[in-house]
Nucleic acid binder design. Sequence first.
DNA 1: TTAGAAGTATTATTATTCAATACAACGTAT
DNA 2: ATACGTTGTATTGAATAATAATACTTCTAA
Lengths: 269, 269
Amino acid sequence: MTKDPSAKNGPTRSDTLFVSSLEKGFRVLGVFRTAQRDLGLRDLSLTEIAKLAELDKSAAQRFTNTLVELGYLAKNPRTRRYSPAIGLADFYYSYVLSNRIAEIAMPRMIEASKKFGTTVNLCELSGSDLVYTIRIPHERARFEATIPGRRVPAFCAAGGIVILANRPTEERELILQTSNYRSFTDHTVTDSKAVQKRLETARSNGYDIGVSQIILHEVSTAAPVFNSEGRAVAALQIPVYMPLWDLESTREKIVPLAIETARAISYSL
Amino acid sequence: MTKDPSAKNGPTRSDTLFVSSLEKGFRVLGVFRTAQRDLGLRDLSLTEIAKLAELDKSAAQRFTNTLVELGYLAKNPRTRRYSPAIGLADFYYSYVLSNRIAEIAMPRMIEASKKFGTTVNLCELSGSDLVYTIRIPHERARFEATIPGRRVPAFCAAGGIVILANRPTEERELILQTSNYRSFTDHTVTDSKAVQKRLETARSNGYDIGVSQIILHEVSTAAPVFNSEGRAVAALQIPVYMPLWDLESTREKIVPLAIETARAISYSL
DNA sequence: TTAGAAGTATTATTATTCAATACAACGTAT
DNA sequence: ATACGTTGTATTGAATAATAATACTTCTAA
């Protein structure tokens, strides 16, 4: 029974090896990210969760209950609304602690941040997103932009550009095809050809600079980090802000710092 | 059927509202933290996961498969070993973004870190643990000690002391009773009476200093953050290191900085 | 005061998880 | 090289645990 004739080949999620309850639970957690980004909500009611996670009321009830018991969601007993809880921080800790690149990068990033008193970030690719793994914040920026775990589309972030530029063509094209070329500011480069051009320049230069691509007046510099097999596994990214910094001063001071730091990390991998 | 006569009162985990598959999934993720701390392992084999999570091979197989599909675990196809994956960072991001204290604290922490070029951390209580929520790292320290999400026992961390000291007696005692008074260095204060003394001093002083309590040669200063109802909800903590800093210079410079910053945050809550 | 919506509790039903087991791949010792 | 033990993968019938319907309660706002 339960043979799904539509399952043709490759591992599907209707396998007996796929625990769909687990997925639903994670879907409930995931809903908070969407709600924060699109609706600006810090907490959600049961019905809101049900709607956003595409679960019926009963299911939402079961999963929120479970997540609260486990300490991953907090429930305000007065408002009956749910919000992410501190238990969730455990997983980020596990991830970073198991990450050799992060371990090697951390002290070098701290040093680098002191040179000009700038923020320094380590980024990794996840699907078509760029994820900020480690952050050494030095600047008041919009709150979201200072939190580790932040995701932005790789195609328009300097960190994404330098990683993609140094990945095999096939892999790069696959990622670009699944990208959603949305723009954040009036300056975001979303034209496919222009992105290609930017990628080429980044590859030959060994770095990328993006101006106001995601945040207005931000000048974002990134250089690729390679592992011992020569694969671009991460990016070292340094954001500075106009008018304190301009393209010229960034080229002169930040670019060498980013490249050098990225190289030092690569060397130790 | 399935009436559990042992379930007397209060919500139990044998409820129909508790999805135990979800718990098992999280148990698998949780195992990595233990493995890292106790065994120093970055990745785990299927059998290791099964053993540590107290699941049979089949269950471990199902849950690891699911977690890999969802992007929360990575599987090295050569070694067949599992490690935490970047997807896990999403949850930390959600948590911090929904956290008003963190939002208000961030810019003030950045400013504070620049004053003497020190690390500045924001801590919250979770059970009997202190969790580092936000970190502005400025010092080379042991890698674990620089990652957000790190947990240490509250009873011996300066941040834990100032939070507990300002919580209602009953709540504090309950937490202390469930604490595991283990020591990290030869200097860790584990004696129950001495901890009480430390708590009293911290309450009347409005801050706490711990020397070599968790890390040798670390001088840890913390001040409590209060919400608008006067509840101690977090701690602002600043670690410095001997011999560059000593107790005297810490008292003179770091203590006022910690207190002032904590107060500024409290004021805006 | 009342209506309607949102949240909570309780069921029978069955789909989904489960654990046993067979099979395959690895690697290590002989 | 070969065989054996160990570890990982695939398959399956059985039954448990997740499900969704619904009744009940609490809240909110007209």
